[in-house]
Design a protein around this nucleic acid. Structure first.
Lengths: 244, 244
DNA sequence: GTCCCTAGCTTGTTTGGACAAGTTCTCTGC
DNA sequence: GCAGAGAACTTGTCCAAACAAGCTAGGGAC
């Protein structure tokens, strides 16, 4: 069973998304919500903190909380798994490994993955399609301890994240992401079907397990127009999601 | 005076950034920290929640918290003010208004700013330089009620956000940001000094006051290579900052 | 009618306690 | 030596209460 505050948050979120509490109007006060749900005020505060982190409501000391938006943020899942985001958004995702081989870590890879130079790693080049159209080129380096599990995956595996969770119970819990724009190189242009020198959205990321162990380092390039990152921030609390 | 939990968070952050608690090692337990700082456990939990939102530490029920990184996230300020971020990062920022005129809101602008079609707005085209080099082209639409304050600003105002805060006490508290890559149009190319069709990082944003009133809607285009967005996420809590 | 000021409301901070749920490590039995 | 059962520890959830700090509306003075 979900904890109490999560259920209260769900109920409030549904009310906001459903338009029962319109954008710009104040939420009921914490005291009122606490009485209505028969809980302590602290529990209500946990619930609204969730909504604030999603960017749905804002708050100022002394005044009632205000509804800021009507779009749900999927939080973080997005940045960890392209496939899981795309499916949730109703798109069809396919993937194809183009190249895969073991190597030893160079200085940059070792630093990113917390390894020593020369430690074994697995490099994978993967092309992903969104509704049939080439959308994303992933150049991923997996830490050596992950290599066997990744190599066992089929070449057309749609969701690596999900496959690793199911086969090894592995969860990519934390991540650091660098986002910028770059010109398409010749390989990028050929595989993504764009002009060389044209715009690509680049996301470089390091993903870490729940234990804090770096698992993968990746350079992902999205064809312009295929994906948009959405970030909502509410004075300290942030949420991320890519809308259609 | 900062609240108690903020001071504890500052102290822990300094210890992490200074390397006293190395990456990958566990934080002291909440009970230990509470005893050390002579506060209740709840206060310590608020402090570590701050660090978790910054992406510095992770947590799993039952196990001690783990230090994930050593880079500070500046949270949200970044997304609200280019000038304030750049100055904090040690860069010199200049700005120049290229075009500025009053208009009436079209359908798209009205929807973004919560206005009616035909309501007055102020459109501004602004070029910003980072250490002397053209870095960012801003196409901003201000809601009518903000127009007089914006028009009073000098054409070479470096930080609009700060100027509006000082002159009107206005704070841009909440924001929604869409980030993608686009090809430079002819005006983009000319003003930013890049090739037409070359890559630009685009950030479209709506900024809102503390009261939840939309204040500005902007299409910002960064020259590729001038800026990188950094996002760190820790299973639900997120932070954003653009590093050098 | 307008301006100011206060009373009441609302969120922010903190305490101290209790139990639940998950992890880690030790110690025992094989 | 190794695996499994616990014990001890750690984070997660929840409660009830109190005071601080900031906002808002209404009433009184002018």
């Amino acid at each position: 069973m979900h904890p109490r505050y999560a259920r209260i948050a769900d109920e409030l979120r549904a009310a906001i998304l459903g338009g029962e509490i319109p954008v710009g109007t104040p939420l009921p006060s914490e005291t009122v919500l606490a009485a209505r749900h028969q809980v302590a005020r602290g529990t209500v505060r946990q619930a609204v903190a969730v909504l604030a982190a999603e960017g749905l409501v804002g708050s100022r000391q002394g005044a009632r909380r205000i509804v800021l938006g009507r779009e749900r943020s999927q939080n973080f899942a997005v940045l960890h798994s392209f496939a899981q985001w795309a499916r949730a958004a109703g798109h069809e995702v396919t993937g194809q490994v183009i190249e895969q081989r073991r190597r030893t870590a160079d200085a940059a890879e070792a630093a990113r993955l917390g390894l020593a130079v020369g430690d074994p790693v697995l490099r994978v080049l993967r092309l992903r399609r969104l509704d049939g159209a080439a959308a994303l080129l992933e150049r991923t380096v997996y830490a050596g301890w992950l290599a066997p599990a990744v190599e066992r995956l089929p070449a057309d595996c749609d969701s690596v994240t999900q496959a690793l969770y199911e086969s090894r119970g592995l969860v990519f819990a934390y991540g650091e992401h660098l986002i910028d724009a770059v010109a398409a190189g010749s390989e990028d242009a050929r595989l993504l079907g764009v002009r060389r020198g044209g715009p690509l959205l680049r996301q470089r990321r390091v993903t870490t397990t729940r234990e804090g162990r770096p698992a993968e380092w990746s350079d992902d390039r999205y064809r312009a127009g295929s994906v948009t990152f959405a970030i909502r921030n509410a004075a300290g609390a942030l949420a991320v999601n890519p809308p259609g």
